[in-house]
Write a protein that binds this DNA or RNA. Structure first.
Lengths: 238, 238
DNA sequence: CTCCCCAAAAATGAATTCATTTTTAAACTG
DNA sequence: CAGTTTAAAAATGAATTCATTTTTGGGGAG
């Protein structure tokens, strides 16, 4: 039922039965939840102890995360979580908006009745969580709906690319949701429009709505960053 | 001078002084040149011998290539180069065209005089190589020009995303160029139009031209695939 | 002759070990 | 006492080693 909640964002699925695959999931989660602060050095030993594995699979996982842009590897100086400054965030959103708008356009013409019903169902469940102000559940379904639109576009490359970039935003988006609950109602309204337009199969309008939805999200995140870095001296990185 | 020739397509630059970084370059080149045929198993030992390294850095490099989609890793069963079938190729082009069209739109408004002159210079050098029918040099400058447009868009995320996807096409594009020289003239004409439109700073028109340019490239590659897999029984993979 | 089963060989996944680089911290100098 | 130098400690990069899985090839049953 709530299987969408535990879904992991990943462009290319790693083998399930391997340690480095499991490590990828865990490290992603740690980064997204903020357990690994951006910018600070991440000692391999510590992570090895935490996950009870040797350095070999851990280092493989770090290489993959680096290839995805979630961490940066400095030669002989370890890995650190990528810090997202405002400029990079805007760049990320510029591309993500492009991809999701195109996905909406494609989805409007390609989506089938079953997938449409599925999205509708998720939408109403999300609405219920919104009414009860249950943020984690709302957040998960929100992501699931956007994913479903990407699925409906029926272009695996488009989806994988989107997932890879969206994964880099997960942490920022979650923080913004926590910091700016007053924007919640507006986001919910936008989702109502998005669903209606998808049902109407108006691809161009849907593309515009999704792009605007993301632009709003971006502004919220930017405001949230500026808020949280108010007292700190010139450290507006996330 | 001809530094563009040796340029490597890579979304996130790997550390230079490390073995696994150098291995990434070498493996990419081998894949793009067809030294590693798609679909067949790639024994680690063989590659270790070839590059005179142990399996540790090699396996790290393979994990990264897998994350990028250039190879697939089957648990306990090794790595193999990803085979691009027609459907995946179309999906790739759909996304790449989207990205490059947007890059063109952005570049038209953001590019500076110096960068524009640089592109013009590359264009004329490319034309010279076209006249002399020097495919490798033409090919390298062609890529460099498309890269320069991405640079001019001034969005590092857009460029990195584009580079990652374009890298997966390098092999196919090179093969198509070899197989279909008669299309060369048309591609050259299209580049003339693209340059003129960039100089005129007509973003919308440039976006359309680039999308069309890529659509034509896609058709050439598809035709080339169908040609080369004529006799073979249902093996239209690249 | 074909198919199936099983043992030997080879390949992969991961831990350990070794070498080099970086970090640290204390001692020394001015 | 501040700043520099340097030696010890720690961390990273890579090779080696070990365990498990898969592949392969031969022998036997039908």
């Amino acid at each position: 039922m709530n299987s969408a909640v535990s879904k992991v964002i990943r462009a290319f699925p790693a083998p399930e039965g391997t340690l480095h695959g499991a490590l990828l999931d865990n490290l992603r989660q740690m980064i997204n939840q903020g357990d690994l602060a951006p910018g600070i050095r991440v000692p391999e030993r510590m992570l090895c102890q935490k996950f009870s594995v040797s350095r070999t699979p851990l280092r493989e996982a770090l290489k993959v995360l680096a290839a995805e842009g979630l961490v940066v590897l400095l030669p002989n100086r370890g890995a650190r979580v990528t810090a997202l400054d405002e400029a990079q965030l805007c760049h990320l959103f510029e591309v993500i908006a492009l991809l999701e708008a195109e996905a909406g356009r494609l989805a409007a013409s390609r989506i089938g009745a079953a997938a449409l019903a599925e999205i509708q169902g998720m939408h109403y469940r999300m609405y219920a969580h919104f009414l009860r102000q249950e943020l984690p559940e709302y957040f998960a379904l929100n992501q699931a709906i956007h994913e479903a639109i990407l699925d409906a576009a029926e272009n695996p490359v488009l989806k994988a690319t989107y997932m890879g970039l969206a994964g880099r935003l997960t942490r920022a988006r979650y923080l913004a949701n926590q910091n700016q609950p007053e924007r919640w109602q507006q986001a919910m309204d936008e989702h109502e429009m998005i669903l209606a337009t998808l049902i109407a199969r108006d691809g161009d309008k849907l593309a515009k709505l999704l792009a605007q939805h993301l632009a709003n999200k971006r502004d919220i995140i930017l405001k949230s960053i500026r808020m949280s870095s108010e007292g700190e001296a010139a450290a507006p990185a996330l």
